[in-house]
Amino acid sequence: MELSGTFELENVTVEEVWLALSDPVLLAQAAPGCEFAEEVDDPDDVDFDALRAAAADREDPPTLPEADPEEVAERAIEEGDHYAAVLGVKIGSVNPTFEAVGTITKREFPEMHASGEGASSDSSFEVSSGMKLTETDNGVQVDWWAESDVFGRVAQMGQRVMNPVANRLVNRFFSQIADRLTDVGEDSPNVRDRIKDLI
């Protein structure tokens, strides 16, 4: 399944949006049903149970606009990074859970690509996605795309609802991102000062 979309933000600069989008905490919070997302060294050898336990009691640090831009910059995602996550999707009673690993495949201002795969006991998915930022008259335009493939039981049993569900999830993710970035935009003068020196 292939999807794409675009959203516009006002009162922000491309740099601000780029920084916000580099925050793994913000991205994880936007991802539907994401229980946690942890950076890992080896994407092929992930102990999800251990990560789950460690994440259980931890609290997320603040994200922009509240966060200290330097802290965000420090934890910013970089090309080649791998992240492990557990995604517990919930749409009504439909609630498959996937253990997933994602990789940042490209991170070159103003474009970012990522790919990921996840599995449950009898199903799996592969997704690749990207965002591109362009400056507009009073803000930033974000163009996004996503390609997903689903395998196994979920695809076999759920064909009637698969596409709309995947559609919902992807759109939900990007609209969450848009909402967060709008918050950044609203607090923008503040943020801008703080990150002026960083970028």
């Binding site: 493939d149 689903v150 395998f151 196994g152 695809a155 076999q156 049993m157 064909q159 009637r160």
Partner: peptide, 14 residues
């Protein structure tokens, strides 16, 4: 079947 090898008509619902 879809291109991903999934039998989409795999139950009596479909």
């Amino acid at each position: 079947y879809d291109d991903n090898g999934n039998l989409l008509s795999g139950t009596l619902q479909d």
